[in-house]
Design a binder for these strands. Structure first.
Lengths: 138, 138
DNA sequence: TGTAGTGTCTCTAGTGACTAGAGGTTCAAG
DNA sequence: CTTGAACCTCTAGTCACTAGAGACACTACA
């Protein structure tokens, strides 16, 4: 049995965030002391580690909810879990793709100006003002 | 002179977003008709195009504010603009790096389970529960 | 047993960059 | 002159937290 602060230290999830997860229904409401403070068991620790790990991988609270729901019914098919993970994977891939395009564009823009001139002639500002100066679509 | 709806069409920025930019001080408050409706000139169009282009490239409202401030003082050094663009570039690169790590991890997790089993034995769920199953740090 | 200091409680509000909706007014076309 | 679309302001909601206020609880030490 440990306090919310202790749980926070062990999982590296901030105290208000733990309470937030409880409010969002991700984390079961734990027992309380006579003085109304939360007291967690190892189960709470494991659950919170799961949540944190999934958040680190970019899963939304909603997706995590579904995964936890599934965890609570070990007899169900895990198809949904695989789908969620694959959905997340393709989202990540799409983001990478988009960011790479941005990277190219920004590289081009930033290289166009050495910062030694004056705002009037700045290639950075000109590029932003005029989309036609862009290499590709974005 | 055109209405906010017309400006919206031409720039592909939604009407409430235009009003939001005005409120945030990115876009100068335009003239109004006798009936209190906004009327824009080409200047407003150009300014909004600039903003939209910068937003598309991921610049924050705050960064755009600084860029616009610079645009309004064409005699100033454009060092700041170059710095902002380079800052944005390194942020984008950092994001790409992080997302690639996530991609690998998710790929590994998603591949570990074909979705045909039962939640109890699901590798996706197991991986999320147990960080030790992860390949690398994240 | 008293007390000091830290931890915890709930509640509200703020973040960024919008988006949605209510309820009312104005414009342009026919 | 009427109709209907576009416009106005204002408030509240989104996501995943974060910050702060003001009050109460726990623990260590005297």
């Amino acid at each position: 049995m440990f306090s919310i602060g202790e749980l926070s230290k062990r999982t590296k999830v901030k105290v208000p965030t733990i309470r937030y997860y409880e409010e969002m229904g991700l984390l079961a409401a734990p027992e309380r002391t006579a003085g109304n403070q939360r007291r967690y068991t190892n189960e709470g620790l494991e659950r919170l580690s799961f949540i944190r790990h999934a958040r680190d991988l970019g899963f939304s609270i909603e997706a995590i909810s579904s995964l936890i729901e599934l965890q609570n019914h070990p007899d169900r098919s895990c198809e949904a879990a695989t789908e969620i993970a694959e959905g997340q994977l393709s989202e990540v891939r799409a983001k990478i793709k988009r960011l790479k395009a941005l990277e190219n564009e920004l590289k081009r823009i930033a290289q166009g100006c050495d910062g030694r001139g004056v705002a009037e002639d700045c290639y950075v500002l000109a590029s932003l003002a005029d989309h036609d100066l862009c290499g590709r679509d974005h």
